[in-house]
């Protein structure tokens, strides 16, 4: 018996050690990014790197004064919020119908957007949007980002709708409720939590998305992520401002992800595994 107690204590210590190690490895680079964003320009490229320094907001001021950071942030908000809303408007009724009828192939079809490389879609979109003179418009970005958000909404909401007992629908039908009424009056209110989770996840993924805005935006509609390139160009001389930009861009998705962490894995895996 004493043998197992000793080995338990040993594996317990190993366990804590590995957990702390993993935490340190995960955290250190991000902490370094945030720390560097508060370093004065002479300190951020100091070699050997400094850990103790007097913090300054100089880099954040630089972003405000020398780059259209707020304008890019505004563009990101327009594209992200609109594409999330569009994803919900399209995806929520589709998830309800898929759950009701048990016909899921249209939902599966939307996964094509998750399997094929983005450029496969970007090439024809580019030609299509050029045809309608929409390159550089918010609409081009909102529509293409909805290709990211809609499947997330459908696949996150599907289990929420599946959890509603069918007897509720049947009782409502007996009372003469049409499916349209059932969706708006019964289904939607019952999946309010799912709507919150799916819109937050859709927001995060739309915010983080790089490729489409890289080609379909112009200097007026460029999102923060697509503008990262500009920051890197300037960052070759100014790491502090680059890390300040990185910190600010990462902040909204990180805060939101922590809010929905309980549902994160089932949302991210789009029905492939149960979280």
């Amino acid at each position: 018996m004493s043998h197992t107690v000793a080995s338990n204590r040993w594996t317990g210590a190993l366990n804590i050690f590995l957990l702390v190690l993993a935490g340190v490895v995960s955290l250190t680079p991000m902490a370094w990014m945030v720390l560097s964003s508060f370093k004065a320009s002479f300190e951020v490229t100091a070699y050997p790197p400094t850990v103790i320094f007097s913090p300054t907001l100089e880099n954040y001021a630089t972003l405000w004064e020398r780059t259209p950071f707020l304008h890019y942030a505004f563009n990101s908000m327009v594209v992200t919020v609109s594409s999330t809303a569009l994803g919900i408007i399209l995806g929520a009724p589709a998830a309800f119908v898929a759950s009701w009828t048990r016909v899921t192939w249209p939902a599966v079809l939307t996964l094509a957007a998750r399997m094929a490389p983005g450029t496969l879609f970007l090439l024809p979109w580019y030609i299509m949007f050029r045809q309608f003179d929409m390159i550089g418009s918010y609409w081009a970005l909102i529509l293409t980002h909805a290709v990211i958000t809609m499947p997330i909404v459908i696949w996150v909401l599907l289990p929420f709708f599946d959890n509603i007992p069918r007897s509720i629908y049947e009782a409502a039908q007996v009372d003469g409720c049409s499916p349209l009424r059932i969706f708006f009056r019964i289904g939607l209110p019952l999946v309010a939590g799912g709507l919150a989770v799916s819109s937050i996840l859709a927001f995060v993924f739309s915010w983080n998305f790089f490729l489409f805005a890289l080609v379909l935006s112009n200097s007026d509609t460029k999102t923060l992520i697509a503008a990262s390139f500009n920051f890197i160009g300037e960052g070759s001389t100014n790491w502090g401002a680059l890390m300040a930009a990185a910190t600010l861009i990462a902040l909204p998705p990180l805060v939101l992800a922590i809010v929905v962490q309980r549902w994160l894995i089932s949302g991210l895996t789009l029905g492939a595994v149960k979280g």
């Binding site: 955290l27 990014m33 990462a250 962490q261």
Partner: peptide, 18 residues
């Protein structure tokens, strides 16, 4: 632990470049 994969990959790139 969820922070690394919820940050934009582009931001991870900027961070590791430095």
């Amino acid at each position: 632990f969820i922070s690394p994969f919820m940050m934009p990959p582009v931001v991870a790139g900027m961070m590791w470049l430095v």
